[in-house]
């Protein structure tokens, strides 16, 4: 009966993942490996960026809006924020579908999301990346790594660490069923600062991590060390988010850009 319960929980989490995220690894890999009839529009310089803004991301940039005359770096930063806000919204819905999460203390739910969403976001972002670039605008565009590197500082420092993480993370060859449990494990983490009912969350975390371990053994029988490797990725993601939060604070201080109120809430007093 216990094994049946574990399989049910794993299935519920995977279904919640497929239902709540507009992009997943299977979809992204289909596009990135050229198996779609509509290949993504490649953004590799200022000209192709402008073309993409007029078509793919017109809604996000607001072609008639305040950002129209701003420099490319600021417009790209704004687009990144829009995507982040959408993913945080999706992650919140996903978290609410994880059995037990909604019955946690509401303050603890806020804390788990505050500290977990960016780690989860960067773990999932890897699915949309290859060594040459990143899918954007729901897979209708592909922005090259070289173009992102060529932006002026500090904006050029934004994505390269995520590419470096993604290349190592993608080498583990996780699929969406693995990622669903991994993202749930990131969110249900008992050592976030300021949690009230730690033991309640630790019970949830233990069962999710245990299911993740069993699932990896069954889904990747050739890689016996996949589970410990993934545990190390949790630590790497925490470091990646710490550095990202510092960079965003620097941009906020030195650049004339606004930060979305939801992201401000998350970054404020984070680390």
């Amino acid at each position: 009966p216990q094994l049946a319960d574990q399989k049910t929980l794993a299935r519920q989490i995977y279904e919640a993942y497929l239902k709540n995220f507009s992009m997943n690894k299977a979809k992204a890999r289909t596009i990135l490996t050229g198996k779609t009839s509509n290949p993504p529009f490649v953004i590799h310089d200022m000209e192709t960026l402008q073309l993409a803004e007029q078509t793919l991301v017109a809604k996000m940039v607001g072609s008639a809006g305040a950002l129209k005359d701003r420099e490319a770096e600021v417009r790209i930063f704004h687009c990144c924020q829009c995507t982040s806000v959408e993913t945080v919204t999706e992650l919140t819905e996903f978290a609410k579908s994880v059995p037990g999460f909604s019955s946690l203390d509401l303050n603890d739910q806020v804390t788990l999301l505050k500290y977990g969403v960016y780690e989860a976001l960067f773990a999932m972002l890897a699915s949309s990346m290859n060594k040459d670039g990143l899918l954007v605008a729901y897979g209708s565009g592909f922005i090259t790594r070289e173009f992102l590197k060529s932006l002026r500082r500090p904006f050029s420092d934004m994505m390269e660490p995520k590419f470096q993480f993604a290349m190592k993370f993608n080498a583990l060859e996780l699929d969406d069923s693995d990622l669903a449990l991994f993202v749930a494990a990131i969110i249900c983490c008992g050592d976030r600062p300021g949690l009230v009912n730690v033991s309640h969350i630790e019970v949830m975390q233990e069962s999710i991590v245990h299911i993740l371990q069993l699932h990896l053994l069954a889904n990747h029988p050739d890689d016996a060390f996949l589970f410990p490797k993934l545990l190390q990725k949790l630590a790497d993601l925490r470091q990646l988010v710490t550095e990202h939060a510092q960079l965003v604070q620097e941009i906020k201080k030195t650049e004339d850009t606004s930060l979305h109120p939801l992201l401000q809430e998350i970054y404020r007093d984070m680390y």
Binding site: M60, L106, L113, I266
Partner: peptide, 21 residues
């Protein structure tokens, strides 16, 4: 904590309210 995270709090309590982009 809820006071400092009003949007997160709202997202947790109500899935239908959109977040302005």
């Amino acid at each position: 904590l809820k006071e400092k995270h009003k949007i997160l709090h709202r997202l947790l309590q109500n899935s239908t309210s959109p977040v302005e982009l």
